[in-house]
Structures are given as structure tokens and as C-alpha cells.
Design a binder for these strands. Structure first.
Lengths: 233, 233
DNA sequence: GGCAGAATTTGCGCTGGCGCAAACTCGGGG
DNA sequence: CCCCGAGTTTGCGCCAGCGCAAATTCTGCC
């Protein structure tokens, strides 16, 4: 197998604090894979063998309840590390990771984590910082689900997606991977019907444009107002 | 100031992997404080100066929304580390910590974290594992809030409290700190009224006994059934 | 180019749980 | 021992949003 090229990771914040030589060394123990759209990188409850960095694409992290309902824990964007649960002491993955589009992924065996974290402290520190951020984001989500109405939650979710993965087009900020009403419902704890009704209403008002598996935010400002207003519009 | 005694921490899992000498050294940089019931150990959004270990008591971690609503992020029990956000790269506390009863707490300046984590790897590793667990717990909570009815959520919350902080008495498992209907509502994303109605119903059925700021679980098994059943009772 | 299946939209009725309000109870401080 | 205030209970009306169902519109594949 040919060695992986340093250019794969040198532009990513996660590796930026490493020297070129360190980057090369880190890559030596990595394996690169492609995943077609809608295939799983790993499955909930299975043995955690590796942790990953997303090189290209978008990944949906999904938790499934015992009775089969799904909840989207988060989306992973290019450059992010994921599947690190085992680095934090778990032996199985707490969720599944599914390619939202065709993806390229680097994988390291979990067994290497302690050694890598020791040898590349900046890499370990960045990872722990990421985990800390995710904990806070998740708690924010709990707060939103406790205190906000569905309309506000969906507005918040769209704004977050637009900020994190939005691509500026001439007609607004487009979420740059396919996302269905059902997906948005699973992110916000509601039903696809309610999401559909909300998006229709917002489209009438010119706040967004949406199509099949596609949403473009035209007027983020008004969406912010919706997200923050405590009373109805 | 007198040196802190090793017996304070030697029984705690967090420090168990350290040698007696290491424990003593770790304590050298710690400061011990008492907090009266209902006083804050730290406040949301303030500069994170320290991280903490709870030696005695119970602590409520609370996040407040911009418009003043409160959500209880979690309860901290004896022996747990808390206020570690800064160790994960944050500069301010993302939540407030309030003593649910009179508490004794050890505090370390955050500036020491990198050094301590390096010098006592087992201590660092345990902490990161704790953070990982909390991330997973929080995601589980998101899942519950997305897919379960209020009754199930409250049942789950009580079971968790009973397991984590329950004290066996002759009449059942008693949650061993004062907890109001309002508190339970803030843990489960509902109102104190609904919690009160549920507890009354459960008390009629002999599943629990409750009083002012007190809940005793008499029949955990039936509570599990309520927590898991997808249809109404 | 047409078709099958997936995604979306929309109508309608119902209900879980909230908001409001009032009464009640308990426990601690004076 | 009594009083005050915090905590709790309970009734009542209402409505946001769900469940169900059916129609409609894409879109990728054959």
C-alpha cells in the first residue's frame, strides 16, 4: 500500500500544530477508505476498533432507540475527528456513522490512541477540546428541547447547519449535502410533517428556498428572529 | 494552611490508580472549601479559574437560558470531578454549580491542569473517560426527549437518581438530597405541575412515596415498566 | 421516456401536557 | 406555639403539534 500523502491532512486544523515530519509519521499508521453515500462507517453497539478523521464528504451520526426510532446526534464535516468514544474509555460505538454523501475517511486503530496521544500532545489536546465542545453543544440541545417550541428548534437547527456546512450561492446559503424533512425532524425531536409545514410557511415568506433534500437559507436574519422569539409569529 | 489529608481522596475511584505519594503531591496544589446549601461553587459564563472534586455532598449543575429559564444539566455525587470545561479548552464555565446540600469541595487552579495531567496520566485518563461518559449520557437524554413521553422521561429520571444517589431505607430507595417537583421538571423538560400529577398517581399506586423535597422509590420494577412502555397505563 | 418508489405536502381530528389560578400543607423561624 | 412562605396539589380550558391518510411531485433507473 502506498504511503498516504501529507497534503491530505496538512490543511486541517486538527493537524496544523504538528510538524510536517509528525504529520507523515501520524499518517503512517492510518488507513484511508472511501464510503459510498448511505453506507455505514461504523454501527452502534459494535466493537470500537478505530477512530476516524473525515477527509471529504459529510457524515451523519445516528442513535437508534431500542424500538427503532432514530435520532441524529450530529453531522460531521470535513476535517473533523469522529468515532472517538473508545479513546474515552468505551469499548463499543454509542452511535452509528453513515455517509451522507460519498466520503473519504482516515482510520486509526484504537489501540494506537494512547501512544499517539502521548507522542503528539497537540493532537490529543485538540481532540479533547473537540469532545468538550460536543458535550457543550449537546447540553445546549437539551436546553433547547426543554425550553423552546418546535418552530424555534427547527430554526436553530437550520441556522446551525447553514453556519457549519453552508455553501454560499447566488440565491443564499445552501446546506451542501442532501437533507430530508425526516432528517431535520430527527435532529429537532419532531415529525417530518411538522417540519414540512414550517418550511412551507418560511418559503412563502421568502426566508428560505427548499426542494427535495435541499434547503437554502435566503434570509438568515429573519430566521434568527424566529429562533429567538419567545412568542409566535 | 495545614496540608490536606490523603484520606480525603484515597477512597475515591478517581485517585485510586495513584500511589500514596502521588496522592499527597496532588493534594499539595489543592485547596479545600465548604459551601453551604444553595450557594454557588461557580457561575455560568464567569471565568473558569479552577476545576473541582466533590468530597462530600451533592451538587446541581444548572444552565440558564438568556430569558432566565433553568435546566438541570446533571447532579454531581461524592467523588466526582466537575467544572472541567476549562481543561477541555473553554475559558468560561458553561453552567453554574450549586450546592444541593452543604458540601466539601477540593479545587485546583486550571492553570495546573496540563502539568497535572502529564504528571498523573491515570488521573487525566479517568477524567477524559468521565467526560466521555457524560457526553454519552447527555446524548441519551436528547434521545429520550426526542422520542419519549413526559411520563417515561420522569420515570427514567427517578430511576437514574435512585441508582446514582439512592440510599436504601426500610421503605425503599430514597434519593438522598432534597429535590423538588420543580427540580425534576427542570431535569426532564416539563413543568412542576405535570411532575406533581405523575408523582401523585404513582404514589396512589404504591410505586413511590414522596414528600416535600423528598422522593422514595418503593417499586423500581414497576417504574422500569413505566419508563419503557411505549403506550399509556 | 416512462415508471416505480421516495420524498413532500396538506387536510383533519384529537390529545398530552401546558398555562393559569386557587387552595392547601408543611416546616422552620421568631 | 403560631405564623409565614415555600413547596405542592388539583381543577379547568386550551392549543401546539402529533397521528393518520391521501394526494402530489420529484428523480433516478431501466
Amino acid at each position: 500500500m502506498a504511503a498516504l500523502d501529507r497534503s491530505l491532512i496538512s490543511r486541517l486544523p486538527l493537524f496544523r500544530e504538528l510538524t510536517p515530519d509528525e504529520q507523515i509519521e501520524l499518517l503512517r499508521s492510518a488507513r484511508s477508505s472511501r464510503y459510498a453515500k448511505d453506507t455505514a462507517i461504523f454501527e452502534q453497539e459494535t466493537d470500537a476498533h478505530s477512530f476516524f478523521v473525515l477527509i471529504a464528504g459529510h457524515i451523519r451520526v445516528v442513535r437508534t432507540t431500542p424500538d427503532g426510532q432514530q435520532v441524529i446526534a450530529r453531522y460531521i464535516s470535513e476535517g473533523e475527528i469522529f468515532g472517538v468514544a473508545a479513546a474515552l474509555g468505551r469499548t463499543t460505538y454509542p452511535a452509528s456513522a453513515v455517509a451522507a454523501v460519498d466520503c473519504v475517511v482516515l482510520a486509526w486503530p484504537n489501540a494506537l490512541w494512547p501512544e499517539l496521544a502521548r507522542r503528539f500532545p497537540a493532537f490529543g489536546a485538540t481532540t479533547y477540546r473537540t469532545v468538550g465542545n460536543r458535550l457543550q453543544e449537546t447540553q445546549t440541545r437539551v436546553m433547547e428541547m426543554s425550553t423552546e417550541q418546535v418552530e424555534q428548534r427547527v430554526a436553530h437547527a437550520l441556522l446551525r447547519l447553514a453556519n457549519q456546512t453552508g455553501r454560499k450561492t447566488d440565491s443564499g446559503i445552501e446546506i451542501d449535502f442532501p437533507i430530508s424533512r425526516q432528517d431535520i425532524a430527527e435532529m429537532t425531536g419532531t415529525t417530518l410533517h411538522t417540519v414540512s409545514r414550517l418550511l412551507s410557511k418560511w418559503e412563502e415568506r421568502g426566508i428560505i428556498v427548499s426542494g427535495r433534500q435541499k434547503v437554502t437559507v435566503k434570509d438568515p436574519h429573519r430566521l434568527v428572529v424566529l429562533a429567538e422569539n419567545r412568542d409566535k409569529g
